[in-house]
């Protein structure tokens, strides 16, 4: 019984931690971009204000839409939040960990994406159709890269749960298998940029509909729905980022506060890195994006090969 209560408490702690800290990354990215542009920029907590503002607004629905349009933001946010339960975050162990949870992790993202795409098609707008089509195309490739990365990590750590793969006291052998891990990190970073629709795959700042991918899909959402979608995006970035952090920071100090502190500074560093990339790079031409993703696949394949050779098989 006591164990059950502890499990529930850890679940709530995890959820609160994700909910509270995820929009912060967006704020850091915005601040970094403003710094590069020589501006003061919006405050760090601007994403929180945005979400709070949207939550207090009414909604406008298209007469074309159905129940799917209204449910999709909630389904997407719920799926992404639950996927966060599978990933350890600094001092917080993953509340749910079991053999093969990586598969569930990927498929929860797929579920969220599927419904957002359906919601885009539900409006009957050609702009949103374009966005949905592009999002679906790129996610196919990034899913392959993601699974190959997981396979490489599974070969290294001989485990199949996310905690066993990257965190939870099992330190990854950077000395022995460093090159492979570096490749995994690079590949994973590329996937992260794609999945969160950042430059160079997609530009979250432009409002020219024809060049956008993710933004154009949510043109018709408003009010609470838009807030959920923004929140979902932030949580997705946070969850994938914390996965990357768990690979990059392979040790634990056994002090919860210390671990969480290291984790948080790592995440801030990641956000700064994304901000720097957004400031110094241009968006890729759309027909180049598949090459970008295929390079992520190839990095993962090389990581696999190195692991196989070094792993003594």
């Amino acid at each position: 019984m006591a164990q059950k209560i502890l499990a529930i408490i850890s679940l709530w702690l995890h959820l609160t931690f994700i909910l509270v800290s995820s929009p912060f990354l967006l704020g850091v990215i915005g601040k970094t971009k403003a710094f590069f542009a020589g501006k003061w920029g919006p405050p760090l907590f601007q994403p929180y204000y945005d979400i709070a503002k949207l939550l207090r607004k009414g909604c406008v629905y298209s007469t074309t839409t159905t129940w799917i349009f209204r449910a999709a933001p909630m389904i997407a946010l719920a799926a992404v939040l639950v996927s966060g339960f599978l990933v350890p975050m600094g001092g917080f162990n993953a509340p749910a960990q079991f053999w093969g949870d990586v598969i569930l992790f990927v498929y929860l993202f797929a579920l969220a994406r599927f419904f957002i795409i359906l919601a885009a098609l539900d409006t009957g707008s050609s702009f949103e159709g374009i966005g949905a089509s592009r999002e679906a195309t790129f996610s196919c490739l990034s899913e392959v890269a993601l699974f190959l990365n997981f396979t490489a990590l599974a070969l290294i750590s001989k485990n199949l749960s996310i905690t066993g793969l990257v965190g939870g006291g099992v330190s990854l052998p950077w000395q022995i298998i460093g090159p492979a891990l570096t490749l995994v990190v690079i590949s994973f970073f590329l996937i992260l940029l794609c999945e969160n629709s950042r430059i160079p795959v997609d530009d979250p700042a432009t409002h020219l509909e024809l060049t956008m991918i993710h933004e154009v899909m949510v043109l018709d959402h408003s009010g609470v729905d838009l807030a959920y979608i923004l929140y979902g995006g932030a949580v997705k970035l946070f969850v994938l980022g914390s996965f990357l952090m768990a690979i990059l920071i392979p040790f634990k100090t056994q002090n919860i506060f210390m671990d969480t502190g290291i984790f948080c500074s790592g995440m801030t560093g990641l956000a700064v890195a994304i901000g720097v990339i957004e400031s110094v790079m241009a968006r890729l031409r759309l027909n180049r994006v598949p090459y970008f993703l295929i390079s992520a696949v190839i990095f993962a394949v090389f990581a696999l090969i190195i692991t196989l050779v070094r792993g003594g098989h």
Binding site: L55, G58, C59, Y61, M74, L77, L81, G223, Y228
Partner: peptide, 29 residues
């Protein structure tokens, strides 16, 4: 748990929209 979170989000949205205007119109093109 995902279903549970979905239910919470649903209730939250319902209660937030209770006092706000909800309009229906053409798709934004």
């Amino acid at each position: 748990i995902a279903v549970f979170i979905f239910a919470i989000l649903f209730i939250l949205k319902k209660s937030l929209l209770k006092t706000r205007p909800v309009r229906e119109t053409e798709t934004w093109s």
